[in-house]
Design a protein around this nucleic acid. Sequence first.
DNA 1: CTACAATCGGATAGGCGACTCCGGTTCCGA
DNA 2: TCGGAACCGGAGTCGCCTATCCGATTGTAG
Lengths: 203, 203
Amino acid sequence: MTSDQIPSVEGAKPLRADARRNRARLLEVAEAVFAERGTGASTEEIAREAKVGIATVFRHFPTKEALLEAVLVRRLERLGEEGRRLAVEAGPADALFAFFDLVLDQSPVKNAFAAALADAGVDVRAATSEAGRALREVLTALLEDAQRAGVVRPDLELPELTAILVGTCRMLEHLDGHPESAKRARAVVRDGLKAGAGAGVGV
Amino acid sequence: MTSDQIPSVEGAKPLRADARRNRARLLEVAEAVFAERGTGASTEEIAREAKVGIATVFRHFPTKEALLEAVLVRRLERLGEEGRRLAVEAGPADALFAFFDLVLDQSPVKNAFAAALADAGVDVRAATSEAGRALREVLTALLEDAQRAGVVRPDLELPELTAILVGTCRMLEHLDGHPESAKRARAVVRDGLKAGAGAGVGV
DNA sequence: CTACAATCGGATAGGCGACTCCGGTTCCGA
DNA sequence: TCGGAACCGGAGTCGCCTATCCGATTGTAG
């Protein structure tokens, strides 16, 4: 009552050294475990894999849902960074497709997170608004560049682009172990993105 | 004993009238509930909705997994029938796309079943082999007809076709409530299926 | 109609996973 | 070095869900 010095604005936590290390490792391990065993993996499994007690997990993340959320946000943030990097390194005509390939390569996983959160009743868009907004901005920039370069159908907008990304992830998940089929499936999507409804085809 | 006209080859069950009705209603209700609440819906929920005791559910389907399987098989069977019908009614050049639209329209649901079964460790291909084989045959026929008609890229094969179907379901799930975006997403996939890698574009 | 037998359905076990309690340990300031 | 406080960890609790048992009910044959 007397001393209520709670610096809990949101980031002001002078977390102790070991606590900080454990938190980092938890995120790391959770990402790996969720990727391998699926999002249904138990909290105990993660704790064991991270070599901490189960209480430590719940101390850092009050619910399992919060842990999933944190992992997802981290992944989205990293994707945003990679997207910005690609926007500079690759040309406007290639950056979008390069980003697409990048996402498809490293995330048969991210998909499952979004699905699990949605099942849990979480509004994914709200939960990941910070990282999500940044990622959306990057995607919008990549899309507009590609459209100006004339390599993507001009009527395409952001919502369907993200949906196509997610859906294509699922496609490739389904084709795990069939690389030739996966290659052709990617080609289908890529060509669909290129071919305009009546617009000229780039290739 | 006199009239033992059992039509079933392997499941010789002269099921009683009420039992048969309950079984049918259970399948019906289970399909609806799984569609609405997701495949995580509890067995009790289904029993209540179907107005039967929980024991009745487990009497007809020894595990929850078996129930999911039965519902999925039913759906696949119906899809197979519709596919055969379309193959006759629509021309070879349109049947595949018509079937695609049909599946996409009525199954933001089927997807979840397959995912749930996969999570449960069930080999979906084995579990649904009967209905699955029939459906695969239909799809193959539709695909070959369309390729002969020259409206689908000739390098496309069955595995990626099914994967594209599943992935596109997911896309549209993600675009629920955005009909314009959904329309464009469908157009992207359709154009991708048409445009060959170097082959002439139909439209 | 009567009796038999199969089915029904609520109550009940058994297990699994998310989430807290309390003693022991580790970090940080004086 | 030493004291205190924050953190750690495993045992334990609670609730949910799948799956089973037995009395009540209902369909079917003669």
